[in-house]
Each structure stands twice: as C-alpha cells, then as structure tokens.
Design a binder for these strands. Structure first.
Length: 324
DNA sequence: CGCGTTTGACCAGCGC
DNA sequence: GCGCTGGTCAAACGCG
C-alpha cells in the first residue's frame, strides 16, 4: 500500500490494554490523519468497498468458525461419553491386571508422548496430538483409586520448541517453580527435572520437564494438578485476563483439552524469539502474543468493526472537519 | 543471610 | 527377594 509510509495505523498495542475509549480515540486520530494526508474521493470509495468486503468475509468466517467449534464440542462430548461408558465396562475385565499403577501409567504416557511429539512437528510448532490416546490410557487405568486421583489431579502436557543449544530445562509459564530434583531416566539420556509450584505454599502443582529423546529441541513439560492460586501475572495486574486455555503463563501457546477430566496438551512455540528463553525474549513473546490477541479480538468485535466503519465514513469522508 | 539449585541418598513400585 | 527405575528428600552449595 502506498499509504503505509505516511499513515500510522498502529493501535498502540504496546501497552496491551483492553479495547477502551482511549484506544478508540487514538484510532480516530489516526484515521483523521489518514484522511488529512491524502485521500482522493475515488480512493476512499474503493477503500470503503474493500472494507465492506473484508467485513463481510470476516463475518462469514466468524460464523463458519462458530459452527465448526459447536460441531467440535458436540463431537468431543460424544467421544467423552463413549470413552466413559467404554472404560466402565473395561474396568471390570481389567481388574485382574493389578500391576498397572501410577508409574506404569506415567512411563507409558511419557514414551508415547515423546514418540508422538516428533511425529507432529510442523514448522517450529509442535503439534502434540496424543491427548486422545493418553486420555484413553488415562481413563482405562485399572486402578480405580488412581484413576480418580488422576482425574482429580489434572495433568497437562506441554511441548515447547526451543533452541537445541539451550540446555536449560526451563519452561517459562509465568508461575514460580522450585526445582526439587533431577533424574536421568532410562529411555531418555536427557535428564528430567522436577519442579514444585512455589508461588503458594499450599499449591500442589508439580511440573516435570524433559527434552524429547528424539528431538532435543523439544522440551516436554508435564503439569500435574491445578494451581490453587491465580496466575501470578494476573496478580501483577496484567491487562489481559487470559484463561489457561489460551495462555499458559506468559508465552504464546495453543491448547487442546478434553474437558476437566483428561490431560490437555498445550503447544508452545518459543522459537520465534531467536535466542534461548530469557527475560527480554519472554517479553517479546508476551508482546507478540498480546498483539495477536488484541488483533484477533478486535477484528471479531462487532462494535469495533462498527466503530471503525463509522470512523472511516465519518472522518475520512469529511476531511475538512478533521481539525478544530 | 536467605533463597533457589544441585546432587547423592533414600523410598516405593514393578518385573523377574 | 532382588535389582531396576522413577520420584522425592535434604544437606551442601552458590548467588545476590
């Protein structure tokens, strides 16, 4: 676009504040500047048309996404119900296999996870799709008590793409962790680090971090339990209030979960910051994430679109009124 | 000096 | 019962 050199289209997302009046004002100011600098009427009409088209397209995509999400949720619920009924019947038959206990579950889960992590590596983002199989194992554990414990104790698995040169077993998720152990496991030459949540003394959450045996640039973090306290970033007054499903700590991530009972798999991509996870890069990742979130929520916000359209039609079309 | 990390020791589950 | 393994503990250590 030839205007890009002249027009400051930024919404000043650096502060990552929610959409508020001041942002709207700033937008209007930017649009005023936009109209003032150069906008032949034809071009404005063309832009307006394009805007309408984009809005229509956006609307259509939003509807499609909503429908897809609804369908996905319905299917997921069906699958969950099916698995529950299947496990209820399996449990009776599996009672003889008393050997399968916590450790067995963990190790099987870990190995299967490690294998699958690499199988779904897609251009810097790890697509870890073991949630179905692991929930299967998870729920089909013959030990009823342990099963209930596991269900109660939510397990989340996070695959993090990092630099191979980064030897630290640190997954920055915003919480405070205290390392209490490290162990080299049999099926993986890379040591596994054990962390406890130290943000709240009573918080039962534990975290295990280990590099994938096959792709050492991938860190696999396993979270056990749920935090009994709010996310530290929320307490610090972080402007956005992301849920665990959209933001794990302060790094960009996506998550696939299956309700409250099964393990969730979350995918982080820490490769975009080109250096190992350090504070400035963490900030950059956070910043990028917030920008994306803001952009996404703004474009899906009907009132924002209406305000944008109103601002364009009201201000640009009347370039003479731009200043008092 | 306080706090977090490191690391060897210990414990419990599991297979043989 | 024994050895292997994963998970945890706690003393030693390092750092700010």
């Amino acid at each position: 676009m030839e205007h890009s050199d002249h027009v400051d289209t930024s919404l000043n997302l650096n502060n990552a504040k929610p959409f508020r009046n001041d942002s709207k004002q700033e937008l209007q100011i930017n649009l005023i500047d936009f109209g003032r600098k150069k906008c032949p009427e034809k071009e404005v009409d063309a832009l307006e048309d394009e805007l309408k088209k984009v809005r229509a397209e956006n609307q259509r995509l939003t509807e499609m996404l909503t429908i897809t999400c609804d369908k996905y949720n319905a299917l997921r619920n069906q699958f969950k119900e099916y698995m529950m009924s299947k496990n209820d019947s399996n449990e009776m038959m599996d009672d003889g296999i008393s050997g399968s206990k916590k450790r067995k579950y963990d190790s099987e889960n870990n190995t299967s996870n490690n294998k699958k992590v690499d199988g779904h590596f897609l251009g810097g983002v790890v697509k870890n799709s073991d949630e179905i199989s692991s929930s299967d194992e998870y729920l089909s554990s013959p030990c009823k008590k342990l099963k209930e414990e596991h269900i109660k104790e939510k397990i989340t698995r996070v695959s993090v793409q990092t630099e191979t040169s980064d030897t630290s077993l640190i997954v920055k998720d915003g919480y405070q962790w205290r390392k209490y152990g490290q162990k080299v496991t049999r099926d993986n030459p890379c040591p596994r680090a054990y962390f406890k949540c130290s943000f709240a003394p009573t918080c039962p959450v534990k975290k295990k971090v280990q590099r994938s045996a096959e792709d050492q640039s991938i860190l696999v973090a396993t979270y056990e339990g749920e935090h009994t306290h709010p996310h530290p970033s929320n307490l610090e007054g972080t402007s956005t209030t992301p849920t665990r499903s959209t933001m794990l700590g302060s790094v960009p991530c996506s998550t696939t979960s299956h309700g409250s009972s099964g393990p969730a798999t979350i995918t982080l991509d820490l490769t975009k910051p080109t250096k190992p996870a350090q504070q400035p890069n963490d900030d950059r990742a956070l910043h990028q994430f917030l920008v994306d979130q803001m952009a996404s929520s703004l474009t899906q916000n009907p009132s924002f679109r209406a305000a944008l359209a109103a601002a364009i039609s009201g201000k640009i079309l009347q370039p003479n009124n731009h200043k008092d």
